[in-house]
């Protein structure tokens, strides 16, 4: 067996080891590579930045721990932006494991920007049923969330005073890794004509590009890269920017492996159609 053949049959555990090393090393020894802000993230930033102080922003933070590496830094950065602009924040989640992530995220953002619960922000907690909640909130937020996450009736929360339904919401921010985004676009944007900014995982983000050109979304933040861009725009150095070095190195490793595989393919003289199952007869 030649070196090329051996390389083509490379044990995938070696690839796994390389990826693990590529992730761990930059986290231990950060390089702080440069980051530029894409037009989509800039649009999201500007949408929030131009809102007048005192406007209410509704956050639907529809994700669970598996996606938190991508979306948690995004939540903190966007919320800090809202707080800096003196906007009122109302947050909720449509996922059962969401509160465990959302509550600390709001707390971190509020503490850093010196904001107070119930006066500057409210966390409504979790409620099941995407469509039911979204349609229901169009009629009455109180009907869907009679009390907040801590059990306080909404009428006793100063920041909720005068907020009945989407009519009093200036902007919807949805951070998600699921079809919740489609439903929010369908109901909040389509039916209730609310402007919306979306934060999604990197894999999902390109699915929502058409909504940007149709102006159904006013900004789109994709994955950890998008979160890092937002942090850069905010002049923050959070978890997303810290994670970008690791992401960069892993991408370089994968690109290197792909090139190596192709070189081995040429050297082994095995070019031609990929081996696949025999085609069945008609």
């Amino acid at each position: 067996m030649t070196w090329a053949d051996r390389l083509l049959r490379l044990d995938r555990r070696i690839i796994f080891l390389l990826v693990a090393a590529g992730t761990a090393l930059p986290l231990l020894m950060p390089v702080n590579l440069p980051i530029s802000v894409s037009p989509r993230v800039e649009a999201a930033y500007q949408t929030i930045d131009v809102l007048p102080a005192g406007s209410t922003v509704l956050f639907s933070l529809d994700y669970e721990p598996d996606i938190s590496a991508e979306l948690q830094p995004m939540t903190i950065a966007i919320m800090r932006h809202c707080f800096r602009k003196n906007l009122h924040v109302i947050a909720l989640t449509l996922y059962p494991a969401g509160p465990g992530l959302v509550e600390p995220a709001i707390r971190v953002a509020a503490t850093k920007e010196h904001k107070v619960r119930n006066k500057d922000y409210a966390f409504l907690g979790y409620k099941s049923g995407f469509q039911t909640v979204m349609i229901g909130m169009g009629e009455s937020i109180r009907q869907q969330f009679p009390v907040d996450f801590y059990g306080t009736p909404l009428d006793s929360i100063p920041v909720m005073r005068g907020i009945r339904n989407y009519g009093e919401i200036a902007l919807l921010v949805n951070l998600t890794a699921s079809s919740a985004a489609d439903y929010w676009i369908q109901f909040a944007v389509g039916r209730y004509r609310k402007p919306m900014v979306l934060g999604a995982t990197a894999v999902m983000a390109t699915d929502y590009y058409p909504y940007l050109s149709s102006r159904q979304l006013l900004g789109l933040i994709g994955g950890m890269k998008g979160a890092a861009e937002y942090e850069k725009r905010m002049d923050l150095f959070g978890d997303a920017r810290r994670g970008m070095d690791a992401q960069s190195l892993v991408h370089v490793i994968v690109a290197f492996l792909v090139i190596l595989g192709t070189v081995a393919l040429f050297a082994s003289g095995q070019r031609g159609p990929a081996p696949r199952a025999e085609k069945p007869q008609e």
């Binding site: 690839i15 796994f16 990826v19 598996d66 792909v258 192709t262 393919l265």
Partner: peptide, 22 residues
Amino acid sequence: STMFALLAFFIASAAFRAFRAR
């Protein structure tokens, strides 16, 4: 979360096998 994190390894392995200039 751990299961999801494994996706990076699977992507690297699939990319190595699939992206070849045939």
